[in-house]
């Protein structure tokens, strides 16, 4: 439970860490979109290499990255299996009972799995290199133009900051409640699905009550310090774009160009590489 790398900041000083969070957020989005656009094995390989490059520059050990991937292992497997068996096209490779594996099905399954992997990696890289506060600052800044049409960018960013800040607190609380109920004979790790679902109630209810209680206390504390929402609110650290950010943006644009070229040209020229997807 305590090993959720997806979302955990890895505090180290690197050129990537020092980039403006807005650039990193847009980069992550861009990479995810590219992962879904790239139509060829070369495209996926390029994106994977790009991410590896970023990992190296960010001085984050690959083991941290793999921790994040472990958590979606089941989802990856599920996606792969679903696509392999139920997407048909091209030549039939294996046929058994109602299950058929075709060449196109296999390729598609691999592509789907790759996309998921790249998506998770890009997202994980974002959170590993950007502190939660920087992240929400970045999101708030990016969304602030929308405030003109009434979108509560500041409030949303505040909600995210608070949620992130309370994750460790609530995890500790969960641990404590689990222990308290275990001490009274509750069992959480045995039994069928239904039994386990029922066993969670003595855990969820106190947790919910506790969360509401904390929310109320926090609201009062914030009000007592004159918090009144985003209007007229200033910050101590103002986000400013720098030279490194410009470099990053240029690199990203070039890379995007490459991927698009690869997709358009190679898909036309070498349909095999595209796997017909």
């Amino acid at each position: 439970m305590k090993d959720i790398t997806l979302g955990q900041y890895y505090p180290v000083d690197s050129p990537i860490h020092r980039l403006d969070p807005r650039v990193k957020i847009i980069a992550a989005f861009l990479l995810i979109v590219l992962a879904f656009i790239a139509g060829t094995f070369i495209g996926y390989a390029a994106i994977a290499l790009f991410l590896c490059g970023i990992t190296l520059i960010s001085k984050i050990p690959f083991s941290s990255l793999f921790q994040g991937m472990k958590s979606i292992y089941f989802l990856l497997l599920f996606t792969f299996v679903l696509n392999v068996f139920f997407f048909t096209g091209g030549e039939v490779l294996v046929h058994w009972w109602i299950f058929t594996i075709t060449s196109q099905g296999l390729v598609r399954a691999v592509f789907m799995a790759l996309r998921l992997l790249l998506l998770v990696t890009a997202a994980t890289m974002l959170t590993l290199t950007t502190s939660p506060i920087a992240l929400t600052d970045g999101i708030e800044k990016l969304l602030s133009p929308l405030q003109k049409i009434g979108f509560p960018a500041h409030e949303i960013a505040m909600m995210m900051t608070i949620a992130l800040r309370f994750i460790p607190t609530l995890m500790e609380e969960t641990d404590k409640i689990m222990k308290a109920q275990s001490a009274r004979g509750a069992v959480f790790d045995r039994g069928g699905l239904w039994q386990r679902a029922k066993a969670i109630i003595p855990l969820l209810i106190p947790l919910f009550v506790s969360a509401f209680r904390r929310a109320e206390e926090l609201a009062q504390a914030m009000e007592a310090r004159c918090y009144h929402g985003g209007k007229g609110r200033t910050r101590l650290k103002v986000l400013k774009l720098g030279g490194a950010d410009a470099v990053a943006v240029i690199v990203l644009l070039l890379f995007t160009g490459m991927i698009l070229v690869d997709k358009i040209l190679l898909t036309q020229l070498f349909p095999l590489l595209a796997g017909g997807v």
């Binding site: 404590k176 409640i177 222990k179 308290a180 109920q181 001490a183 109630i201 003595p202 209810i205 106190p206 009550v209 506790s210």
Partner: peptide, 13 residues
């Protein structure tokens, strides 16, 4: 039997 600190926070029924 183990009674934790602030045991009232474990009530749920």
């Amino acid at each position: 039997g183990l009674v934790f600190q602030y045991p009232e926070y474990q009530l749920f029924e």
